[in-house]
Amino acid sequence: MPFQRKDLLGLEDLTRSEIEEILDTARPMLEVFSRPVKKYPTLRGRIMVNLFYEPSTRTRTSFELAAKALSADVVNIAVSTSSVTKGESLADTAHTLEALGADWIVLRHSSSGAPAWLARRVRAGVINAGDGSHEHPTQGLLDLFTLRQRKGRIEGLRVGIVGDVLHSRVARSDIWGLTKLGAQVVLIGPPTLVPPGIERILDKNPVHAAEPPITVAYDLKEVLPVLDAVVVLRLQLERQKRGLFPSVEEYSRLYRLDSERLREWGAKPDLVVMHPGPANLGLEISEELANSDRSAIREQVRNGVAVRMAVLYLLAGGTVTG
């Protein structure tokens, strides 16, 4: 079944088979990207615009490399928050880009829903590169791809997501992707950041799984031994000012991951550790663990390009065999 979408707004919208199609497409893309000459002519003459309302070197670069590997032309636009307050509207900017010939607008925005809102207003494809606390679908896809690469499967895995789930777009995309592919998700953190009832976000969009697809745990130590993989989220330090946790020190005592702790608390020997980056090294994860064999952080970065190539390729109308 060919992939037929104009936009990639979130993993909530995708079916299991669509997600799998993207992951399957990303595999050959990774090979292309690993060659000395990293070029494929598929998107020659097409234009992708990175429209970033929040600074993000990693995601922007990853999209740029993905597009260029497929020979698309890339324009980068970094919009400072100040020009938003000057009254330059997102719709106006997007219409301008469209008039200039943009085929895809890759949008990073601090407002949840901005890509979905924009997608209804422009003919160009909209790719969500992270919107507020909502979704970061390509990050979710690259997490799935990396996990599958490491574990050979997603189905039946127990994956912990540790940290500020409440505000994390990565957590939401991971939740959708993992549960749709049959993994169980354990959300771990203080109750202020893993709000009661969050498991009910699946209510409107149930997945068919034997076990409850989402469980919540406040105690990392208790739940660590059953996990096959863990996604460590970046802690936004400004959350402390809003009274969501008392101090960085206390957060670190309760939820930081390091190799010693994994041993003491009885983590599985083949536990995979991931982080969407950029990590607060020493805060939510130790530098030593981030650089260890358990860590898949480097692979995540590399796989990110392949997954984004696959997304662009499929949005452009390609199929796995085509």
């Binding site: 829903g113 507020g132 606390s133 909502h134 979704e135 009832g197």
Partner: peptide, 11 residues
């Protein structure tokens, strides 16, 4: 506030 807001990532 509730599961829908959590799902949509809105405060």
């Amino acid at each position: 506030e509730g599961p829908t807001a959590l799902r949509l990532g809105l405060r």
